[in-house]
């Protein structure tokens, strides 16, 4: 193992990790936004949008991210629509993540008993208030475990961004292997980099879960 090599390229990995996490966070943000919207559309069974949401979920779930990225990055330019690598990465990740997040939100919403809504209505709350004060707070905390699992899943998925010529972790590792044949070192650093990124999220997630369960309901 060439420690000198490792030390030399740590800064490169740190930079790449920054890109990975940056794209990951933006993608997760939009995934959450899409997911919440889709789950609410389905929860309220909003006519036309419900159909569109259904089609979206099928598309998103049944195509690999890699294929979605190829489509965005190589396919769309042929139709004259051109996005930067970063934009493709974020759009792709959000498109994928949205359906997963929607599923997590949906299971939270579905876990809330109908009588909760009815008793909130019966004290005179309007539908929006019922959502805001009664349904969503409960549904969201029930969704947290699923949402956290999805975040970790999405950060891992960012490893395919290297096909967009983005200097993320995967790209850097492949590059170093290609240039110097330091396969062991490059891969070791890759594994460690992902661990460093994902472990804190994982720990935070289980902490949050425990907190929510404690503060929560479990009646």
């Amino acid at each position: 193992m060439d420690t000198e090599f490792i030390i030399k390229y740590i800064p490169l990995y740190v930079k790449a990790a920054g890109l990975t996490i940056g794209l990951g966070i933006v993608g997760i943000f939009f995934s959450l936004l899409i997911g919440l919207s889709v789950s609410l559309i389905q929860y309220f069974k909003i006519p036309v949008l419900k159909r569109i949401a259904g089609i979206y979920i099928e598309l998103s779930r049944n195509t690999p991210l890699l294929v979605q990225l190829f489509f965005l990055y190589f396919g769309l330019p042929k139709a004259g629509i051109r996005f930067s690598s970063q934009a493709c990465a974020i759009i792709g990740l959000s498109f994928l993540g949205g359906s997963y997040m929607a599923e997590a939100f949906r299971s939270g919403l579905n876990a809330i008993d109908k009588v909760q809504e009815e008793s909130a209505l019966s004290i005179g709350l309007k539908h929006g208030q019922v959502m805001r004060y009664v349904i969503l707070p409960q549904a969201l905390s029930l969704s947290v475990p699923g949402l956290c699992a999805n975040m970790i899943f999405l950060i891992k998925e960012t490893s395919v961004f290297s096909v967009l010529a983005l200097a993320d972790l995967m790209y850097v590792a492949k590059d170093l292997i290609g240039l110097y044949y330091k396969t062991d070192e490059a891969l070791l650093m890759l594994v460690i980099a992902y661990l460093v990124l994902l472990l804190p999220i994982s720990v935070a997630a289980s902490f949050l879960e425990r907190r929510l369960r404690y503060a929560g309901f479990g009646n």
Binding site: D113, V115, Q116, E118, S119, A120, Y133, V134, P137, Q138, S141, A215, G216, F217, N219
Partner: peptide
């Protein structure tokens, strides 16, 4: 009939 307090 069912306990309908808001659990949170």
């Amino acid at each position: 009939q069912s306990y309908d307090l808001f659990p949170h």
